[in-house]
């Protein structure tokens, strides 16, 4: 556990002076089930990417690369909407 900063060390006015610091908080630890993709079956429709509430589907050059397990909360929406059912929810 990082030691929390005191009032003399944090910026004034309660502002968070950098963008996207939430990336330091790994919500992947919330999971019970995790999605696993069967790559050969995937048609790269990218629907899993646009419906993921946690931006945890990795996409590069228009191709679905996998999941960001640091943040994936295991909600199962991707498996539910995949048109070719190539995503399975497994324990982990």
């Amino acid at each position: 556990m990082k030691k929390k900063k005191g009032w003399k060390e944090i910026p004034i006015a309660g502002i968070i002076d950098k963008g996207g610091t939430a990336r330091e908080y790994k919500t992947g630890s919330w999971r019970t089930f995790k999605p696993v993709v069967d790559k050969p079956k995937c048609i790269n429709c990218l629907q899993c990417w646009i419906y993921c509430p946690d931006s945890s589907v990795l996409v590069k050059d228009g191709k679905m690369e996998g999941f960001d397990y640091d943040y994936c909360k295991g909600c199962g929406i991707c498996a539910s909407i995949c048109p070719v059912k190539c995503i399975k929810m497994e324990k982990g």
């Binding site: 309660g14 502002i15 002076d17 950098k18």
Partner: peptide, 27 residues
């Protein structure tokens, strides 16, 4: 820290839980 400084985004008015509110008020 300006909202219009889009190169350096800041967040104004975050949620403080019990761990930071007191420090902000002390300031």
């Amino acid at each position: 820290h300006s909202l219009l400084d889009v190169e350096n985004p800041v967040t104004y008015g975050p949620l403080d839980l019990q761990d930071f509110y007191f420090e902000h008020k002390r300031q």
